[in-house]
Amino acid sequence: MTSHAEAVHGGHEHHGPPPAHKSSRVDARVLGMLLFIGSEIMLFGSFFTVYFFVRVVNPDAPSEWPPPPYEFPVFVAGINTAILVTSSFTMHWALQSIKRGQRSAFLAGMVITFVMGLAFLLTQVIEYLHVGFNTGDGAFASVFFGLTGLHGAHVAVGLTLLGMVIIRGFRGHFSPEHHHGVELPGIYWHFVDIMWIVVYSTVYLL
């Protein structure tokens, strides 16, 4: 099959593809990331839907949520929320710094963001250990672990992306002209933060 292709195209030396025509002003990678986030929002959507079912639609739902004697650690999670939201700002600062060519500020921003994300995740693990109920303790627990766990997995993915930026950053990559590798993880990180605010308000506060 390929020998045939060569017969037709013998003679031609291909050194690479012709550059694709850019038919949109949107950058392909940013667009890809945004669509991916759209899909992620739907994944969270399915978790919120099941939450809605067990708590609102279900005729046998307990009137108090979570049913006593269980309680959600609203305060600890609130502090965690503050940490994560702050990390969005440091992320933004890091991106702005590399755009302006300030390497050390960029690196500092990234490391601080990473450490805050890690602190969030560790706090959540500790929270799980001390929360006083387990996955088998009823629908409220299913929803609690489901949504916070799904979000925690996203934080872990975000941390991987941030870690990647940090490694590359310390190796001297990225510049005011080329910072896509920072921008995309940044977009993802902001998404993870905003999602947390939604998760926090629906799971813990409502």
């Binding site: 994944l43 959507g45 399915s46 079912f53 009823g138 627990a141 299913s142």
Partner: peptide, 30 residues
């Protein structure tokens, strides 16, 4: 749409192996 089937299968799997009760009425599921 696909994330919804992903979700539905996660819930069933959690119910099966982590004893959650997303869909089991005994545990308050729907």
């Amino acid at each position: 749409a696909t994330p919804f089937i992903a979700g539905s299968q996660f819930f069933v799997m959690f119910d099966r192996i982590m004893h959650t009760s997303f869909f089991t009425p005994e545990g308050g599921g729907y």
